[in-house]
């Protein structure tokens, strides 16, 4: 059971993030929701590579024993970098939206047009 806690956390993070994106009106809160989903996915990737009692996967002067799998960590790092770029872009767009509409309420800025 104790080993399943990270996976429960992953599911909870993704669901909370989706909830924030779908039901929150404020654009900043929606951005936070997307970041939460991203953290959930990153946590999932990291959990996959973890082995109990393992050491860092560096072969030179290794004390022996099992090593953690480095691939998920590499994937997570890439994913985090991409996530930062997306986050920065979203926040800058939010700033522009606030300048144009004077509000951050998602229901007021959308609207259909001719």
């Amino acid at each position: 059971m104790i080993y399943n806690i990270p996976y429960i956390a992953v599911a909870a993070l993704i669901l909370i993030g989706l909830y924030a994106v779908v039901f929150k009106r404020n654009l900043i809160k929606m951005v936070i929701g997307i970041t939460l989903i991203e953290s959930g996915v990153n946590l999932f990737l990291i959990t996959l590579g973890y082995r109990e009692g393992s050491i860092a996967p560096i072969y030179t002067s290794s004390p022996g024993g099992i090593m953690a799998l480095p691939v998920p960590q590499a994937l997570t790092l890439t994913s985090i970098v991409i996530g930062v770029a997306v986050l920065a872009l979203m926040l800058s767009l939010v700033i522009h939206i606030y300048r144009h509409y004077g509000t951050l309420d998602a229901r007021k800025i959308g609207g259909n047009e001719e």
């Binding site: 989706l18 994106v21 779908v22 039901f23 929150k24 009106r25 929606m30 998602a106 229901r107 959308g110 609207g111 259909n112």
Partner: peptide, 14 residues
């Protein structure tokens, strides 16, 4: 259906 609200777009996805 076409509200123009991004939350609804994500809701349709879900």
């Amino acid at each position: 259906m076409h509200t123009g609200n991004v939350s609804d777009y994500v809701l349709w996805f879900v």
